[in-house]
């Protein structure tokens, strides 16, 4: 464990060098957020105060939080870097090093996104206050319970990404699968909470990664309940277990294939 913390620390410190680039990268975040906020303001403008049980204020905070999760954790290491490691056979060099490649990549990824995540978080909160003001009924004490949910969500998101990247062992180009995952999260998973989907689609969404990666954490911020917390944590636990198993098995199979073919 210690070495992974060390990898995390080193990459985090390195990322401080690129603060300026991160700030210039905000534009995309701003714009998406801006478009969505306009969209919701338009939709809420002349209708009743609640849609599917959400007030406009809650809805806008929901979008802000999910966007922070999406943009704050996006990173090339899990996608392009890992794919090119596999394609170029660099992964073979990493095999005889005294660490597990999977956990190495995750530590690096987390180190790289930490600064960015907090920058996005800060900016996102500012935008939220500017647009709709504070969130009614939000209690800071709950944060202690919500933070682990965010952490788990980020971890699961990382593992899911890696499951896709690892397909590169068998496939020419895993890029298109990442697009689809991206789109599922940003199009379906950040704009509306589960309750807004048609009834028949709701169970589907509840079983999808959206529930554990974006919906769960955001829902807990805008409308906390202990019952919800347990439900999300349970789902996250299951997802984490399954993704780790899948990725470990796929990695072993992939590496074996690499050995047989000699890279």
């Amino acid at each position: 464990m210690r070495k992974y913390i060390f990898i995390f620390k080193t990459t985090f410190l390195e990322s401080l060098q690129y603060t300026l680039n991160i700030i210039l990268g905000f534009v995309s975040f701003f714009v998406v957020l801006f478009v969505f906020l306009n969209l919701w303001q338009y939709i809420y403008a002349d209708s009743t105060n609640l849609i599917s049980g959400y007030s406009m204020e809650q809805m806008i905070w929901y979008v802000i939080i999910t966007e922070i999760i999406f943009f704050g954790t996006r990173n090339r290491t899990l996608t392009g870097q890992m794919t090119s490691d596999i394609k170029s056979g660099t992964i073979a060099y990493n095999m005889n090093k005294p660490y597990n490649y999977i956990y190495y990549i995750v530590s690096r990824h987390l180190g790289e996104i930490t600064l960015r995540f907090f920058l996005y978080l800060g900016i996102g909160i500012l935008i939220g206050y500017h647009f709709v003001g504070g969130l009614a009924g939000f209690q800071a004490v709950n944060l202690i319970l919500i933070v682990p949910v965010f952490l788990l969500g980020t971890l699961i998101n990382s593992f899911l990404r890696m499951c896709i990247s690892i397909l590169s062992f068998w496939m020419e180009d895993a890029g298109p699968y990442h697009w689809i995952y991206d789109k599922i999260i940003i199009v379906v998973g950040t704009l509306f909470p589960v309750e807004m989907f048609p009834d028949w689609a709701q169970p589907l969404i509840k079983f999808s990664p959206i529930y554990v990666v974006t919906y769960g954490p955001a829902k807990l911020v805008i409308d906390f309940s202990m019952e919800m917390l347990w439900r999300v944590l349970l789902a996250q636990g299951i997802y984490l277990g399954i993704t780790i198993i899948i990725i470990t098995v796929m990695y072993q199979k992939g590496v074996k294939k690499l050995n047989v073919n000699g890279g």
Binding site: K183, V187, F192
Partner: peptide, 11 residues
Amino acid sequence: NNATFIIQWMI
């Protein structure tokens, strides 16, 4: 990928 947006607009 583009078609996923149809879902968004349907909702």
